[in-house]
Design a protein around this nucleic acid. Structure first.
Lengths: 114, 114
DNA sequence: TCCATAGGCAACCTCCTGGTTGCACATTAA
DNA sequence: TTAATGTGCAACCAGGAGGTTGCCTATGGA
């Protein structure tokens, strides 16, 4: 079998990225940051049913995945989405789809004897 | 604040889906199923460094998320990707991006006094 | 200066997850 | 019929994830 998976060039970081999106609370945070723009932890917590600390942890996870980053402003910390990573996630899914198409193509070409 | 997030119509299932993609081993399985087409657990295990049971568990997780499904053939069980779900994942990311664009638009419109 | 507000840190808890091992059962292939 | 192959099931385990609470520090306003 030749180098089987060109999509897996960066499996670790992609898994990280998807994992960061794989939680309801975090997905909700993404959505709120999308709609409301950059905002502080307190404001993000206000709309949620969990503790501020929980939110903080989620933000940290998302930060590790590169999905968000923060800047300090006075006594608050403002979080904003990082759009590039979101694009990378999309790109990865597109690659998988493409890989799939190619594989299907190869398969059809190979199984002419059907 | 109006109904804030239209993307969150189905946050639970989306989170499920992303979570299913959020693991290196599973991402590798997706890739192999893409490249190699439907195949049995044993064949999937052969290329991996973990136990057959581990692979089985991963497949089950992906099945719960709707990413794959299986059929029995003789004494083996053949797993195949379900492309629709993959498309849904892409769709969701696209929605988020769109939501973002809209929010940016609103923001720019609102902050003319800058 | 003094109090309320916004966060950071750390300890702690529970449950899920990824992984393994051992064993039983079904289906092939000799 | 027998042995090998392909799975399924269940128990078990360590570590990580999500969440909470308590306490301490730093700013901003009155």
């Amino acid at each position: 079998m030749r180098g089987s998976s060109r999509v897996m060039a960066e499996p670790k970081s992609s898994a990280h990225l998807f994992a960061a999106l794989g939680d309801g609370t975090r997905l909700r945070l993404v959505s709120r940051l999308c709609d409301g723009g950059p905002m502080s932890i307190s404001r993000l917590t206000a709309g949620s049913r969990v503790t501020r600390q929980a939110i903080t942890k989620h933000l940290r996870v998302m930060e590790d995945a590169g999905l968000v980053h923060s800047t300090r402003r006075g006594r608050e910390r403002i979080w904003r989405l990082d759009r590039r990573r979101l694009r990378e996630a999309r790109r990865h899914l597109d690659l998988i789809s493409k890989q799939w198409d190619d594989a299907l193509g190869r398969l059809k070409a190979a199984v002419e004897a059907d």
